[in-house]
Design a protein around this nucleic acid. Sequence first.
DNA 1: ACCGTTTTGTGCCCACGTTCACAAACTCCT
DNA 2: AGGAGTTTGTGAACGTGGGCACAAAACGGT
Lengths: 223, 223
Amino acid sequence: MTARTPSRALGESVREIPEATVARLPVYLRALNALGDDGTRTCSSEELALAAGVNSAKLRKDLSYLGSYGTRGVGYDVDYLRYQIAREIGVTQDWPVVIVGIGNLGHALANYSGFRSRGFRVVALLDADRSRHGELVAGVEVRAFDDLEQIVSTHDVAIGVIAAPATSAQDIADRMVASGITSILNFAPSVLAVPEGVDVRKVDLSIELQILAYHEQRKAQLS
Amino acid sequence: MTARTPSRALGESVREIPEATVARLPVYLRALNALGDDGTRTCSSEELALAAGVNSAKLRKDLSYLGSYGTRGVGYDVDYLRYQIAREIGVTQDWPVVIVGIGNLGHALANYSGFRSRGFRVVALLDADRSRHGELVAGVEVRAFDDLEQIVSTHDVAIGVIAAPATSAQDIADRMVASGITSILNFAPSVLAVPEGVDVRKVDLSIELQILAYHEQRKAQLS
DNA sequence: ACCGTTTTGTGCCCACGTTCACAAACTCCT
DNA sequence: AGGAGTTTGTGAACGTGGGCACAAAACGGT
């Protein structure tokens, strides 16, 4: 966590958006998409907050980090705000993604429609198991894990998804980082060590269940 | 968020464990299991923190909420600490779980080995699609969604997993809550409204990717 | 028994995030 | 034009979480 002070052109200030806000922006975006598809042209912070499942003050503060895109007494223009959030998150452009590990989970991810519709494109499915190479999953051919470097440089891939067993997760991460990937979404239940500058996000089913179990147990104790 | 003050028997204080700590306990538990399987009998906060990917002061503070289970100058007994954390989380008992939605993701979840090994047992797989009923997935028969109430009461299920499309997620949640489920793990990309006292945790692939994209974009801007 | 070494448990402070509450800004109606 | 009604944007207060740094406690060697 070094405090990098970016060199910026004059007047071009880089707004620092709090992490907690960043995590909610995609939720707002989804809610706005739903509203927009319903034909809603404008909405208040109260309405949007309801749709997003947060309180309206928090929503307004979150949006204020992006700029002043609302109109007092009126609300927010759905399409305009939608575009601004998408631009801020970076999903107006297309992000090529590589998925490693084509087990049940890898299959599910490859077939996930939310991928393509939100600016992400699966450019390769890789697996170490030779017997699966050539197989077509969601229209994409499964290839050898050793093709990683070539694919990453060809498609300029920045984001990698690990859907392999925990035992191989660290090796895969190392190879990803070495090949130039700087963001990793890890579904394997393991702690990844990566160099400074590489982002890792972890999705762990069993941890989520254990957190629920803890609260469930507490509810039971309060008999 | 009403501040429920539980009625407690005299002297029986319910330690309030911070949410952030609860979320890390499963990680510690996993790290301890790995150490224990390696034959390690005792470990320092420094070692365990390394394995869990956190800093040692934070680890010690987290553990201190459970009690004083370490020995100064020595460290923690792996087996003892493992048991204490498991007990605190509630995974010394077995939690029956129902999964609704047997698409790619449902399959992946049903086959996930981390389930059983960590105190969770899939007692039913439900799907609204009749054509899938009777199918065997991971040794469990797929049954009709309408069997939910009967299954929940028979097996005393407290935890439900939603692996269905976003459009039906709220309906499924409503039925789950009505049938007596009080903890929901939601994989559908939708905001769930549930009554007070029901816990919901959300796992959203597309949000995780968008968060990564945001940071990726920022890195690029810092050219 | 005592001293040096190791390692835990925790008080203290700082940073981040959430919520309240209100002034500023806009619309609409008369 | 002006006043009533709405809704945003934000300053300020509060609460939670993270990390340093150190006293307390255990161990081992002499």
